[in-house]
Simulated assay, not measured.
Amino acid sequence: MKFYLNCLKVVRLYSINFNRQLSISHKYFQRPETLPNVFDRKTKLKQRERTCLDPDYKIYSYVHERVAQSLVDRIFDIKRTFESALDFGCGRGLTASELTKDVVKRITMIDSSSLMLDQIRPPVEENGHDGIEIIKKHIDEEQFSGDESSYDLAYSCLSLHWINDLPGVLRKVLHVLKNDAPFIGAMFASDTLYELRVALQLAENEREGGFAAHISPFVEPPDIGGLLQRIGYNIVTLDLDEIHIDYPSMFELMFDLKGMGENNCSWNRRLTLKRETLLAAQAIYQNMYGNKDGSIPATYRILYFIGWKPDPSQKGPAKRGSANVSFKDIDKVLSTKK
């Protein structure tokens, strides 16, 4: 009975903390003057630039490479040639390295890390990259500004989830886009690494009588859709993808997150974890989610979105009351078309 009550207490504590994380997410979408300062941007810059000092930094790019390829597929689905594109939070330019000159002529790449800009892969001629003009700009993404109607494409791959003023940034990108130009983005969504979050919280509660935030808060997909529409984007579409990767243990997962530069930088994070807590978390992780071969799974939940800058040429919804066919007669209409 005592064990059962303790389990209920742990589940309740986890539920309270999860709801608190969601409330942080919802605060993104309040008015700018009440926007919280969730992330320590200086710490995030240090974390990302620390990865640039590792000679083997490329081996930790597997998640970013996978997402970059999926983002490029969405760009290719738009049958246009873009004269000028904006790569917002470009990192090492993984997305740009997949683009071809018959799709994009010029790319302006901005990032807060000068070291990552230096590690951008050069265009490869045999893959059709020769002729793409690359412009690098060392700018903090939150301080970005530009001339109105400067780009006919903007995209961002796994950088927006570290932005404090997300509404402000989306509004700035809309400002620099030309009419009928798309903004295509990918960011980590809620429930990313939920296995790691649960294991750490249960272990910390068991060993230390409470727990702190070790995984950064992520936004909810419906919130992003509503935010894009409220700011002024048109024809907004969202889709979710999950990437499942197996690791030998929780420690390899945490080590790789550090190598990616995706470790936590929220202001309320706890800077240290006790050794016994980490060992307990690994045991819980293995017991709750472990695979039969002894490895542990990790889930990366990716939100892809597309929003367009409004233009009179874009199709809109039909006027209310303009329908000339009743839903009860829809079967007759379909049979007639056949």
Rank of each mutant, 00 (worst) to 15 (best):
L170K: 02
A186Q: 09
T108Y: 14
S190T: 14
G128D: 02
G131W: 14
S145G: 07
A186C: 13
V176Y: 12
C157S: 11
Q119V: 05
E125P: 11
V124H: 09
V104W: 05
D87H: 05
L160W: 03
L174V: 08
E141A: 06
D87A: 05
R121Q: 13
L115D: 09
T108C: 09
G209P: 15
R171L: 12
H138N: 04
L177C: 07
S145T: 13
A85L: 04
D140Y: 05
Q201H: 10
L160A: 04
E148W: 07
I110L: 09
E195K: 01
R197V: 07
E126N: 11
L99S: 10
F183N: 00
H161R: 00
F188R: 01
A186N: 04
C157E: 04
D140H: 04
V169R: 05
N205F: 13
Q119L: 08
V104N: 12
Q143H: 10
L117M: 11
A154G: 02
E133D: 14
A154S: 05
E141V: 06
L196D: 01
L166D: 03
D147E: 10
L86H: 01
V173Q: 03
N127M: 12
L174M: 10
V103R: 09
R207P: 13
S97H: 14
A199C: 04
S145N: 11
I134G: 14
P122N: 01
F183R: 00
G89S: 04
T95E: 03
I134T: 13
D118W: 11
L99N: 00
L153W: 11
A154V: 00
F188G: 01
E125N: 14
I107K: 05
S97K: 07
R92D: 09
G131M: 11
L86R: 00
E195A: 06
K136F: 13
G209A: 09
L117E: 12
V103K: 13
N205G: 06
W162G: 01
L158D: 05
T192C: 14
D165S: 07
I134V: 15
P122W: 00
L153C: 06
L115R: 03
L153V: 09
G93I: 04
K178N: 10
A199H: 02
D165V: 05
S145K: 06
V198R: 01
S113H: 07
P123F: 00
G93N: 07
N205E: 05
G185H: 04
Q143M: 06
V104A: 14
L174F: 14
H161Q: 05
S114P: 13
V173I: 15
R92W: 06
M187R: 10
F183K: 00
S149D: 14
S97A: 11
V176H: 08
D87Q: 03
D165M: 06
L117C: 12
L158N: 00
K178A: 13
E148F: 09
C157Y: 00
W162P: 01
A181G: 09
A181M: 10
L158I: 11
A203C: 03
D102W: 13
L177I: 10
K105S: 15
S149G: 11
P167G: 07
R171M: 12
D130K: 10
K136A: 03
